[in-house]
């Protein structure tokens, strides 16, 4: 019996190699060795500014992870940012409204915010009613946020996660109440809407760099650098693949395809 499931050999070794590179970079970081810096990400820089502005205006901050479920990596990118947002809100004594479409994501957010307020030394400022599960329906959730925008007029709206058609509805409604809007998603279909209607947009992978960027923690930064190394590897594979495909037209005889599909 074969050891591998068909088509999974390269898949497996890719995971292992990425794991090893990440581990090496983490070890280097822990040993205090130099880790390359990551570039400036305007959207993440603006988080504190937007919360500060909301505090000055005496208006709340709104944060939502979109429609993603508990198993979506984009939702985890939101979790990683939410703690920071909640801690800033606690520090500045600014109200934070968190809206959710997924019941499991809602429970996790509740825990993150509660803990962040506790860590900021402001457990009394935590208000469970501001961490809201709205509706499992996409547009029920959207309509509820539009209502919150109209009634409570947040001065900042942070939307990081996976979004669908509601992206522009939320962003445009936010623009109409004059909120500073920071959005981030990997959804290629919704990125143009966010770019058009929001003040800052985190494009694709930038949302995953948030925790490393905010904390400047060398261990986390090391993982981001590892990711970039692999991006170079993927790029080289594309270049080699393009050349090979142009030389060998028959995909069955293409050694690179055969290797990847092994």
């Amino acid at each position: 019996m074969a050891l591998w499931t068909k088509g999974m050999v390269v898949d497996f070794w890719f995971v292992v190699a990425l794991g090893v590179v990440t581990y090496v970079l983490i070890t280097r970081a822990r040993a205090g060795m130099k880790i390359p810096e990551i570039r400036k990400i305007a959207g993440l820089e603006a988080l504190e500014e937007s919360i500060g502005r909301a505090t000055e205006m005496g208006r709340p901050v709104h944060a939502t992870p979109g429609l993603g479920g508990i198993s979506d990596p984009e939702t985890f990118a939101f979790f990683n940012t939410l703690g920071y947002i909640a801690q800033l809100c606690a520090k500045y004594d600014c109200r934070l409204i968190n809206t959710n479409r997924n019941y499991l994501v809602h429970s996790v957010n509740e825990e993150i915010i509660k803990q962040a307020y506790l860590e900021a030394g402001r457990p009394d400022a935590y208000n469970g009613d501001d961490v809201r599960y709205l509706s499992g329906f996409q547009f029920g959730y959207t309509a509820a946020i539009l209502g919150i925008f109209a009634r409570e007029k947040p001065a900042a709206s942070i939307m990081i996660g996976y979004f669908y058609a509601e992206s522009l509805i939320l962003a445009e409604a936010g623009a109409q109440i004059g909120a500073i809007q920071i959005a981030g998603t990997t959804s290629t279909a919704q990125l143009p809407f966010f770019v058009a209607a929001c003040d800052y947009t985190l494009i694709g992978e930038e949302i995953y760099a948030a925790s490393a960027y905010i904390s400047k923690n060398p261990v986390l930064l090391g993982t981001v650098v590892g990711e970039d190394w692999f991006k170079i590897l993927v790029f080289l594979t594309i270049v080699v693949g393009t050349v090979v495909t142009n030389i060998i037209a028959d995909p069955k005889k293409n050694p690179l395809t055969n290797f990847i599909m092994k």
Partner: peptide
């Protein structure tokens, strides 16, 4: 985005990223 999600999952699996367990995880101030 795929590479980013891949690394995020790896960070979670290695226990470096733990914001989902409550608090600020790796992104503390």
């Amino acid at each position: 985005a795929y590479l980013g999600s891949f690394v995020t999952v790896l960070r979670i699996l290695l226990g470096i990223e733990r914001a989902h367990l409550g608090g600020v995880g790796g992104a503390g101030m």
